[in-house]
Nucleic acid binder design. Structure first.
Lengths: 170, 170
DNA sequence: AAAATAAAGTTGCAATCGCAAGTTATTTGC
DNA sequence: GCAAATAACTTGCGATTGCAACTTTATTTT
């Protein structure tokens, strides 16, 4: 009996039954489990999502970085290129090249700020606004699929937990 | 009064008070809010986390892809290179190069499978096991910081929600 | 058993990324 | 009010990535 129980809790997937999973997600712990590691799950979710969204965006001829920038500018505009980079959590020099490409494609325009000559302001062009609108339209169905089965409560819980995670990362 | 209420619910951050946030996270909706978009949050969290972990891993001389592969092999070994790629959600050809680098660094060894001549099996060397152990040790403190404030219930809820999200992504 | 199809991995090549070392503009300390 | 420090951006360059086309081995069909 004792033997059996011991086997039960150490075997395969049984850690999932534990009351407190936090130790299993600790990379330093002996009984570490990849599936209990929030950042493995986080990276998997983000990567999978990016694969899915990438396929959809290809239809309208844009890539993920472009879409991210458009989404950010859709929220507030114009924005310093450094702010865009921060929002997207993308290296400034990389963002430089992304904006360069987008400018060449006619999606955004850039200008030197009058208030502060160091900053480069980024604004969507009309074509950019149009593309953003299209991007939103084509990604909406995917959104519905992924959110399937999430109650209003689940949804807001997810947002809250992610937000707390992000805040702990300072 | 009517006027004031209208202003209130359309202003700034007040969407957060809404009972059901799901519509705000829908890229197709008119009152879309970036912060209600789970994948913006997801990508932000993952990117921020990667920045933090990258800095820690640099101390022991490895990068994120290396660490991901070591973690995966730590879970089950030997593994076909294609399986490693799938687990890590990394392109096979990219994984090819990652394993190549790791092999050159003496962290893993590869061999052709006897059961199936097509598959390339990847195994950690002793040096790889040692590095994995070190990596776990140096990342553990970061883990504690990030998990701070998460109850056992919060933690398991996060894992469950992420898992459901991942499953919806098929 | 041979031919056709599929699965698993390999590699050339062009594009993207990000570090490091700049430049230019603003702010701070004296 | 000027020199030093800081902030914001820019760019060269080597490393990494991923598509596409290919090779090799296994499985399925005829």
């Amino acid at each position: 009996m004792q033997q059996k129980y011991f086997q039960m809790v150490t075997n395969s997937e049984n850690w999932k039954l534990s009351k407190d999973l936090r130790p299993y997600g600790n990379p330093g712990s002996d009984n570490f489990q990849l599936e209990a590691y929030p950042f493995y799950m986080l990276n998997r979710a983000a990567s999978r999502y990016n694969l899915a969204i990438e396929a959809v965006l290809r239809e309208i001829g844009i890539d993920i970085p472009t879409w991210r920038v458009l989404m950010i500018l859709g929220e507030s505009q114009p924005l310093a290129i450094g702010q865009v980079a921060k929002s997207a959590v993308i290296n400034l020099s990389t963002m430089m090249r992304i904006v360069e490409r987008m400018e060449k494609a006619g999606l955004v325009a850039t200008s030197q700020s009058e208030a502060d000559g160091r900053v480069k302001q980024v604004t969507m062009t009309d074509a950019g606004e149009t593309t953003l609108h299209e991007a939103r339209k084509v990604t909406a169905p995917l959104y519905d699929t992924i959110i399937r089965g999430f109650s209003a409560r689940d949804f807001s819980t997810l947002l809250t937990l992610l937000d707390r995670l992000i805040h702990n990362l300072d």
